[in-house]
């Protein structure tokens, strides 16, 4: 399987290379040119701060969306009144393009860090709500009774009964959440932040510096892949360990 993956990746790289060599166009630099641009940005000291700034915004928006979305989704899955009261709001935001949310946030709250992160979190929030609500609806009532019979406190109930059951849903929300959030963060940066990968992309776009553009995008994509592989997937595996033991 790994062989196939490696072969497929190599093929993609080769295609790019061949295409770039044939076209000989500024719009499609070949891999060595992108690598050179990457080295130059690294040497100039612009790449790492940009990656760090974007990563910080991704982390902020992601955590905000996950926390608020989980709480709201849980409440909506548990109590019908909460569901009926919040559902129109969720549906509304779910159907507003992230771009519109960003523009409105900038117009209403100014081009500030809080507006940027808040807009991204808000754009992602409804997805988390919908997924976690599904999880809360699927909670096993028979374990709830165990918690009541043995007089679990609210914290113990959350830790021992609710969270383990919600874990797969939280993991799904986190996975799709991270993938969406970092792409939206690039857009908020492009539209109104003086730093970060999105800002640098905007700059390279105006200079028609395609090698730089690719250098920034590919390096940030690599960072996000790393976060997923090193943080999200292990957490998911841990949460699922007991299921594997039962099988």
């Amino acid at each position: 399987m790994i062989l196939w993956r490696a072969a497929s990746a190599a093929l993609l790289l080769a295609l790019w290379w061949v295409l770039a060599a044939t076209l000989q166009d500024r719009a499609l630099p070949d891999p060595p040119a992108v690598l050179a641009a990457l080295r130059a940005e690294l040497a100039a000291g612009t790449l790492l701060p940009a990656l760090a700034a974007t990563l910080a915004r991704v982390a902020g928006a992601f955590l905000l969306a996950m926390t608020l979305g989980s709480a709201l989704g849980y409440a909506m899955g548990r109590w019908r009144a909460a569901d009926a009261a919040a559902d129109p709001w969720v549906t509304l935001v779910l159907n507003i393009p992230a771009l519109v949310v960003i523009l409105l946030a900038y117009i209403w709250f100014g081009q500030t860090e809080a507006a940027a992160i808040g807009a991204v979190a808000l754009a992602k929030l409804p997805n988390v709500v919908v997924v976690v609500r599904e999880g809360a609806r699927a909670l096993d009532p028979s374990l709830d009774e165990v918690a009541r019979l043995y007089r679990f406190g609210p914290l113990m109930r959350l830790r021992e009964v609710v969270l383990p059951q919600l874990a797969p849903f939280l993991a799904a929300a986190a996975r799709s959440g991270l993938a969406i959030v970092w792409k939206i963060v690039l857009v908020v940066e492009l539209l109104g932040r003086p730093s970060g990968v999105g800002f640098e992309l905007h700059l390279r776009f105006q200079l028609f510096d395609v090698a730089g553009l690719l250098a920034y995008s590919l390096s940030f994509a690599a960072v996000m892949l790393g976060v997923e592989a090193l943080a999200l997937r292990p957490a998911e595996r841990r949460a699922r360990a007991w299921r594997d033991a039962a099988a």
């Binding site: 374990l143 043995y150 007089r151 021992e160 383990p164």
Partner: peptide, 19 residues
């Protein structure tokens, strides 16, 4: 109705702690 994500020992400890 044991907590499936907890070992038997933990299942016993948790209810005792709750009590």
């Amino acid at each position: 109705r044991l907590l499936p994500w907890r070992s038997l020992a933990e299942n016993l400890r948790i209810v005792a702690a709750a009590a």
